[in-house]
Every structure is written in structure tokens, then in C-alpha cells.
Design a protein around this nucleic acid. Structure first.
Lengths: 195, 195
DNA sequence: TTATTTTTTTGACTTTTATCAAAAGTCAAA
DNA sequence: TTTGACTTTTGATAAAAGTCAAAAAAATAA
């Protein structure tokens, strides 16, 4: 199969995976055969709380947020994810338990979707795929850990400044209300901090 | 090699790994040859902030805590780990960056220590070892995620009640001061909550 | 046992951030 | 260019949890 023959979007996914561990042609084919490309409008819910989270998405273009509802029914964002990133509700996908999180697109998006059972098949058939899976899990784990530590260690103002410095583009793509909830502060407090 | 011939402590480690994916004798031997057993007194520092975190420990017996110092020099515990659990500073070990965390034993402990380069060798030599590594990374990731979400979603009192219900034994082995910092509340507030 | 260190509790006060209510600004479409 | 739906800002007040200082209790060592 020629490079150009893989369906649109897969080059981006293969590039990410290949940078971690070389992908054999067999594995590439298996990935194509065990997944499908989907086009999703913005503000579409991909996962509801209570549902089983059995799909992992690779974002070819666009972006999404992961959030949960707190006791008072208020949304709290835990992740914003964009091109070349993986999109799941970690807890639901890894444990198989019903999700407490929601996933919603922030923009019109092109995603590559893989069902968990297909992914598990590939993990068993291609042991080297576990090398990639392990590295990616470590990568997102670290991101999660950094975020969790910042929520602990830093004041509201410091969290805002850290995020602004690290991800200035985020402020172009996501509303301040969403960012406030991601930073664990009320929208009003964020507004005051920004002055 | 007979089962009984593996050095003391490894049966416990093999049992944990084997429950995830069958371990070949070759892999078992490699693990024994690439690690060593260490006896550590309580309150011993295994890792200091600023150092490179290049060792992963399996706890055969005993326990340890992972903590960092905040701006004011106050210790904040992020993990308590005991028998049959893995002990690392996640950020430092996975990124290779200098650690911002400290690791200290809570009790006299027996640990199996593996250097990162030895671990990486085994990951390359035994691709099925990545299956185990991936699953373990997922498992600790989920624990981290649950903890981070509880810090976000729950009030100080709710966090205390959740921990007390889930890990009552923890309160037998760890001081309230340590637990308060783990829960992200001051010792005084924890004391008031407990009344 | 007694002394010493460490841990836990209590009281008074402060700080940070949330909440509620309302005004102002922005954007897109009719 | 006006309507309507969000989004962001502002002001006043409240709640949650922190800080500081000191006492009390418990654990450990001499």
C-alpha cells in the first residue's frame, strides 16, 4: 500500500505513533481496518455521563472538552484537547465503569474513532503496539499530574498566569467561562484576576 | 529454575505482574537480574527534589509517601504507597526531568529496585512486558485521576469522609498531619472536621 | 518511670474565593 | 440595526478553609 493510499487523516495519526515506535505496515493496516473517520459538528456530545465509554478518538482537526457536573449541576471542565491529541474519558475508558464525565466538541471536528474491543484486539495481536500505548498513557498521565499539582500548589491567580504562559492559543479557541472552570475558579474571579 | 529459587520478595512482584499477563521464565529471570532487593529504615529519603528520579520500586513490605514542598516550604503529600504497589515520582521518572517531589519511607520497608535504563532495556527486549507496563500505568493513572477529581469536586469534609470509607487502614498507618496534607486541608481543619 | 519529642486539638482572627444579582459588552442572524 | 443569546465584568456579601499561637494528649526514648 502506498503512503498516499491511507484514508485522509491517518497520516497525522501515524506520524504521532511512529515518533514513539516504528509502525509496521501490518499494524498500520490493522489500525485503518479497526477504526473509522467521523465528521462531527461543534457542540456535539460524544459521551454522556452514565454511559459506557467504549471509544477512543484521535483528533485529526478540531477540538473537544471533557467535563463533569458537580453536586449543584455546574459543569467543570477537566480537559481541552485539539489536533493530534487523543480524546477519551480516562476513567470510563480504562475501567469500563459508567462514565461520570461528558465529552463535547468545541469546534467542527474530524476524528478517528476506535472501539475499545478493537483496540484490545490490536494490543494482543501486535505486542509492540503496547509500547506505543504505554508511552502515550505515560504522556497523558504526566499532563494530568501536572494539572492536578497546579490545582493544589498554585493560587487562582498563579494558575491563570501559568496557563496563559503555557497555552496562550487556548484563550483564542475557548471561552473564558470554560477556562475558569478548567482552572477551578469561578468566572467572576477569573474576570477580576485578568484586570 | 524452581519457583522457590527466586530471591525473597519476587513472588509478590511476579504475582502482581502475572495477574496482568503471563510472565515467561526468561522475563522473570531478566527482572531478577536487572533489579535488587533493598532493606530501608523508616523515615529514609529515597528521592530528593532536584535529583533525577531514575529508580522504580516495588514495595514488598512497608510503605512510603511522595510529597513536595510548596512556596512556603510546607510539605504536601501526594501519595501513600504500601505492599504490592509501585513507588515512583511519576513526573520525574517518566520525563527524566529533575524531580520536584520527595520520596520517604513511612515504615521499615523491603523494596525491589529497578533502574530506569534496565527497565527500558526490558521493555525493548520483551515486547509483552509493555502490555504489563501499559496496564500498570493505566491503573495508577486512574488512581491519580480519582484523587485529582476528588480534590476538585468535594469539600474538605467530603474528601475526609470518602478517604475514611475507602481506606480506613490508612488511618492506622499514617499520622493525621500527613493525611491532612494529602487531602489538601490544614491539620487544624482536619481536626475540626473529625469532631 | 520520667523526660522529651511529636502529634493533635482548640480558640481567635484573616484570607481567599464563591455566590448572587445586575449591568455591560459581543456576536450573529434576521 | 435591531433582536436575542451568550459572554464578560462589576459590586456587595457570605462561606470555607487557612494562619498563628498555645494548650493538651500521645508516643518514644532514656
Amino acid at each position: 500500500m502506498l503512503k498516499e493510499d491511507y484514508p485522509e487523516g491517518y497520516q497525522s495519526l501515524f506520524a504521532v505513533f511512529n515518533a514513539i515506535h516504528p509502525l509496521s505496515d501490518e499494524l498500520k493496516s490493522a489500525i485503518v481496518n479497526h477504526s473509522h473517520v467521523v465528521n462531527i459538528k461543534r457542540k456535539t456530545t460524544l459521551l454522556n455521563a452514565g454511559e459506557s465509554s467504549n471509544t477512543i478518538y484521535f483528533i485529526v482537526s478540531g477540538g473537544a472538552r471533557v467535563y463533569y457536573l458537580d453536586n449543584d449541576g455546574k459543569q467543570t471542565n477537566t480537559w481541552f484537547l485539539f489536533e493530534q491529541e487523543l480524546l477519551i474519558s480516562v476513567y470510563g475508558f480504562f475501567t469500563g465503569q459508567p462514565s461520570f464525565e461528558y465529552i463535547e466538541t468545541l469546534e467542527d471536528s474530524v476524528l478517528i474513532a476506535v472501539k475499545r474491543e478493537k483496540l484490545d484486539e490490536m494490543y494482543l495481536q501486535f505486542m509492540e503496539f503496547n509500547f506505543i500505548g504505554r508511552k502515550l498513557t505515560e504522556y497523558y498521565y504526566i499532563r494530568n499530574e501536572i494539572q492536578a499539582n497546579e490545582l493544589r500548589m498554585l493560587s487562582a491567580k498563579e494558575r491563570y498566569e501559568t496557563l496563559l504562559k503555557r497555552s496562550p492559543q487556548l484563550f483564542q479557541r475557548v471561552s473564558l467561562g470554560h477556562i475558569a472552570s478548567y482552572l477551578g475558579i469561578s468566572q467572576e474571579t477569573l474576570s477580576r484576576i485578568r484586570k
